[in-house]
Design a protein around this nucleic acid. Structure first.
Lengths: 116, 116
DNA sequence: CCACTACATTGACGGTCGTCGATGCAGACA
DNA sequence: TGTCTGCATCGACGACCGTCAATGTAGTGG
């Protein structure tokens, strides 16, 4: 079996984040990834959703509660949550009929660190 | 003349930034402002431009140098720089025929602080 | 005054995004 | 099996965004 290198494996979905915005040698891939994560926060509904998820109890929030809070249709909320999840800013977990969303605090801290 | 209150005047152009993303009482105005600033960084060209401006000599970079670096037309670069300036992330100053752009490090630090 | 340079603004085009109704799908329960 | 609930996906529409050529504007220098 191949030896595990010390290279950090990027978590599944091109997640946040990486090289700081102010780095003198920022690669095009880093630029694209940063823009992708920032784009996930470029909509007021998604900012609010992340804010709600971040202030939820430790076991998460279900989509139905979020739909009520942001006053958008359920498909629209699902759409925005998918964008936040693809950006690595939130996690989701199925429990029974419900999907519970929680913030990915590691990714969020990495994003903060990437700003200069 | 009216007495100056201690209320902090928001610098000219709805600038970055303010209440943290994780605040339990984040107002709609805060959400809108955060989304606006994040939207300014939601494009790879603008992320690169801010990166270039941030790594420029202390007296700034002229637009012509940025045009060469990002390989876009001069109107396109001007357009992106205007978005970054409206978001409060960069400052511009005229010197002779040239416009020099510099990062607004205070606003950038405020943006970092606003992430949870 | 004129020509030139550096940058901003305008106008137009194609592509992407936010939104919702309709539909699909999985789990719970009888 | 059938039905109900919670959520995801699809399809479509209007609005916004990134891009560039053309044009406008301000400063420089002859």
């Amino acid at each position: 079996m191949a030896a595990k290198t010390t290279i950090k494996v990027r978590s599944a979905a091109s997640t946040a984040c990486c090289a700081p915005l102010g780095a003198p040698d920022l690669s095009d891939a880093d630029v694209a990834m940063l823009a992708h994560v920032f784009a996930a926060l470029a909509d007021p509904v998604r900012v609010r959703l992340l804010n709600l998820v971040a202030n939820a109890p430790a076991d998460g929030v279900c989509v139905c509660d979020l739909v009520e809070s942001v006053e958008r249709s359920q498909p629209t909320v699902s759409h925005h949550l998918k964008i936040l999840r693809d950006a690595g800013l939130v996690d989701s977990e199925r429990r029974g009929t419900w999907m519970y969303y929680r913030p990915d605090r590691v990714a969020i801290a990495a994003l903060r660190a990437s700003i200069m």
